[in-house]
Simulated scan of single mutants.
Amino acid sequence: MPLGTLERSAPPFFKQGPSALSRLAAFSALALFLMVADTRFQITGPVRQALGAALYPLQWVMFKPVEFARQGSGYFQSLQDAQAAADAASQKLVAVAQQAHQAEQLAQENIRLRKLLSLRDRLQTPAQAAQVIYDTPDPYTRRVVIDQGQMHGVEQGVPVMDESGVLGQVTRVFPLVSEVTLLVDREQAIPVLNVRTGARAVAYGDPTAEHGGGIELRFIQANADIREDDLLTTSGVDGVYPPGLPVARVAHVERRADSAFARIYCKPLAQVQGVRHVMVLKPLGENLPPRPEPAPVVQNKRGRK
């Protein structure tokens, strides 16, 4: 192509338009005008509403995953909080139940201690309080160990009772503790008196009876006047138990035609299982009057007695 035919002007790519500063000023003025016009005449309100309506589905779709993520995290967090609250509530409930049970035990123990104190005031025989430490491990005997021993003035053979009646007898004494054989032990016997009839008898331990043991009256005639619910107290003829202490009530009277003796089962009034506080009586011999001195022997004039 001949050189004379070439265009002498610069290509459109290299053409120089308005300067950048002039364009910035023009666009800034236009923006300012639009803002003032929108503020005064609200000319862009319909445009914004149309754009918002057109973009709302896209916004809803884009926002749903974020909302689901927030709801999921909130659900799991609320579930953990609920589980933690349930665990705390159950622990608190257990603690309250334990406190209520302890309060009930303390109330029952307080009632029994008050009864023991009132019993000591009513007894004519001196007594001292003691606490049961544990039951003996021998399965063939019914014995308990108390926290009073030889150093506390406890002697072998003295009676032991709780707030309801005679519980047993001290059979072994150690320096700091003592062993008490309960009335329901098979080797234990106690003289009793029927308050209604005044008849005396001997009650023997019966550990095989219902509810952990009882006592049995033996060698009672089949036609003897004895009924259920008769009260039995200590007779005092043995010199060990003071008279008048409550022992048991007659629970069942069994009269057989083939036997001359009746079988009489009694329920002890004392708590033979789970007792905690007892009263140890002083030896009955300390309260007995001294024996009278023997009368002097008078001799006759012949020197004979």
Rank of each mutant, 00 (worst) to 15 (best):
F219H: 12
F219P: 00
F219L: 11
F219W: 06
I220P: 07
Q221I: 00
N223Y: 10
N223P: 04
N223C: 02
N223W: 08
N223S: 14
A224N: 12
A224C: 09
A224R: 14
D225C: 02
I226M: 08
I226K: 10
I226S: 06
R227I: 01
E228I: 06
E228R: 06
E228K: 13
D229I: 00
D229V: 02
D229C: 03
D229G: 01
D230V: 09
L231S: 14
L232E: 15
L232V: 14
L232R: 13
T233R: 11
T233V: 15
T233K: 13
T234D: 10
T234F: 15
G236H: 13
G236Q: 10
G236T: 10
G236R: 08
G236F: 04
V237W: 06
V237C: 02
V237D: 14
V237P: 02
V237H: 08
V237R: 14
D238I: 11
G239L: 04
P242R: 05
P242L: 00
P242A: 08
P242K: 05
P242V: 04
P243E: 09
P243V: 12
P243I: 03
P243Y: 09
P243L: 02
G244K: 06
L245E: 04
P246R: 01
P246N: 02
P246M: 08
P246H: 07
V247Q: 07
V247D: 05
V250R: 07
V250A: 01
V250D: 09
A251Q: 05
H252W: 01
H252P: 00
H252K: 04
V253S: 04
V253Y: 01
V253I: 04
E254N: 13
E254R: 05
R255S: 09
R256T: 01
R256C: 00
A257P: 02
A257S: 10
S259R: 15
S259W: 04
S259N: 15
S259T: 06
A260M: 06
A260L: 07
F261H: 11
F261T: 09
A262D: 08
R263G: 04
R263D: 01
R263S: 10
I264Q: 06
I264N: 10
